[in-house]
Write a protein that binds this DNA or RNA. Structure first.
Lengths: 206, 206
DNA sequence: ATATATTTTAACCATATGGTTAAACTGAAA
DNA sequence: TTTCAGTTTAACCATATGGTTAAAATATAT
């Protein structure tokens, strides 16, 4: 017989697939139950309501990617290497979780309670006010390695450049990257390099 | 009495608000009817079904922003000025339609028929195979004004840098831009400048 | 083996929702 | 004024869906 913990994990995995794919409203409890190989009543037995289950999933995913990113920022590398390292590892992260950004953004853009509760919790716990990146960037500015500007502009440019491909992959592939021989892995390796070069030299003194 | 065309516009506006805010599944016909000040039956009288209405809205929005962007690219400016102009105008566009990108992305990421039909139609009509930007970029590379790299990397970086703020505004404001005195307009003006500088100098020869 | 607690299920229930229908209303043409 | 096409509405319908219940099945302890 399947152990409780395993069963819980099976359910969670099924729920995650469906919610990530279709969002809160588009997901149906029946579909989740089917995917987990159980029936609806058991789903409610484990997770009292759709909203509870959804919040569970959202919290799990949001926490995972937040801690992953914070992990990436926790380094002593000098700025240039840090930037290269961060971009590369962040894109690796996205390759392995390519549907998460859209899922999170979709939920956040709704501005519902579920998202904001989780976000507040996670930010309270994981991030203590000031993130290390800001310090790393400001330090590099002090040393004259990069030009002075609002560090947030740099951060948003890095994140946006990395994320956009994954959020819009379908349309980008339809409109922009239309070659039949397109090699996703190769392109993403080039992408790491391009983002690093553009941004690093874009903020270097001239 | 309200004219037919006006009424149609009222309905379309209401439907747009609700669909953009909540997506296909989250939107309810009743809510759209209420917002338009009519009842459900009339909604079905004008637009036979929810899917039809949704496709109408999606097509309208997708066409609008696509043609707006193509319009921006239709210029004779030299590369440097073109890049500055494009970023500035594109962000202005996003300021005035800040919920559209998320709406479009959400739909596209589903990969449903509705989106792909519309996209194929619009791309067939509006874009004839090769976009002017690629030419502008490759031209600048020939002249040695910018370094050689896959033009798509530049395009994706520009679009991602511009779009990301609008797609993730809620979370960015929560996590990154937390000052009470934050001035959105001022920040976005700075953003135009930052994106231009980072990318232009990032792809300039050194 | 028996009793007890925990899992799992089939059958229901109440409500929400997309969609229909037939009748009533309205404005303009004849 | 009458007529008729085009509008608008209230009342309905069928289905889907989140959620409940009570009983059956299973595991565990004694």
């Amino acid at each position: 017989m399947v152990k409780v913990q395993d069963k819980e994990e099976i359910i969670l995995k099924a729920a995650m697939d469906v919610f990530v794919e279709k969002g809160l409203y588009g997901a149906k409890m029946q579909e989740i139950a089917d995917k987990a190989g159980i029936n609806k009543a058991l789903l409610h037995y484990y997770y009292r309501s759709k909203n509870k289950l959804y919040e569970h999933i959202f919290r799990f995913i949001f926490t995972k990617i937040t801690t992953d990113i914070i992990e990436l920022m926790n380094t002593d590398l000098p700025f240039k290497e840090f930037l290269r390292y961060f971009i590369s590892k962040y894109i690796d992260l996205l390759i392995n979780n390519h549907k998460f950004p859209m899922f999170i953004m979709r939920e956040i853009s709704h501005g519902g309670k579920i998202a904001s509760n989780v976000i507040n919790d996670v930010i309270m716990n994981e991030m203590n006010c000031r993130y290390p990146v800001i310090d790393i960037i400001e330090d590099a500015m002090e040393k004259g390695e990069i030009i002075k500007m609002d560090p947030n502009q740099i951060i948003i440019t890095v994140l946006g450049s990395c994320l956009f491909y994954f959020m819009g992959e379908n349309i980008i592939r339809t409109v922009l990257l239309t070659e039949k021989s397109f090699d996703r892995n190769e392109f993403l390796e080039q992408r790491k390099d391009a983002i690093f070069k553009i941004i690093y030299y874009g903020i270097s003194p001239r």
